[in-house]
């Protein structure tokens, strides 16, 4: 079941587009914002609300990198693995994160705190290597300061 708040936010998005299902991506974003990820059940409820099949909405949900169809931790770390960050040695950051958190790409720490994902170019190549934790951008990151950065997130 979608909550009243989710319904009202999705209705607003529907009002901005000429056909109901065009609000599909916005609806997925709204559901994910409230629930952290989009479960099969959430997907079915959202699809029914939009008047499309769950399969059709899933084809959209799974196309985009940042709609999560699996549970994620409270904070998602997006590590840029594109060219400028590669040249500037992002692999050291990756190794440090994986070792420190004890997880690989796509995994979540057992305490549900962090999920680690690779991400394409974050558009801050003059400050490589870069990563995001949730909505926060970190630039010119060194392995030494990673522990301090992570400690800001509970």
């Amino acid at each position: 079941m979608l909550t009243a708040e989710e319904v009202s936010q999705i209705e607003h998005e529907i009002s901005l587009v000429p056909v109901r299902k065009a609000a599909g991506i916005e609806a997925l974003k709204i559901v994910q914002q409230h629930r952290g990820w989009v479960s099969d059940e959430s997907l079915k409820d959202t699809a029914a609300f939009l008047g499309v099949s769950a399969e059709e909405l899933d084809s959209v949900a799974t196309f985009y990198n940042l709609i999560f169809r699996q549970p994620v931790g409270r904070h998602v770390i997006l590590l840029c693995d594109s060219i400028s960050c590669w040249v500037m040695g992002y692999e050291k950051i990756r190794e440090h994160l994986m070792q420190k958190l004890g997880i690989k790409y796509g995994q979540t720490t057992p305490d549900g705190r962090f999920t680690l994902l690779p991400n394409v170019c974050l558009g801050t190549c003059d400050c490589a290597p870069a990563l995001m934790v949730g909505p926060d951008l970190y630039q010119n990151v060194t392995p030494e300061e990673l522990d301090e950065i992570l400690s800001r997130y509970n």
Binding site: L16, A22, I25, V60, F63, Y64, L66, I67
Partner: peptide, 27 residues
């Protein structure tokens, strides 16, 4: 005027794929 934030796919930079994304479809 409205702001639409994408959900991450390089293809969205191609203008016709971007339009599909704006229509709520695969880009």
């Amino acid at each position: 005027m409205h702001l639409h934030t994408g959900v991450g796919r390089y293809m969205c930079g191609e203008e016709t794929a971007l339009l599909n994304a704006l229509e709520g479809k695969r880009a």
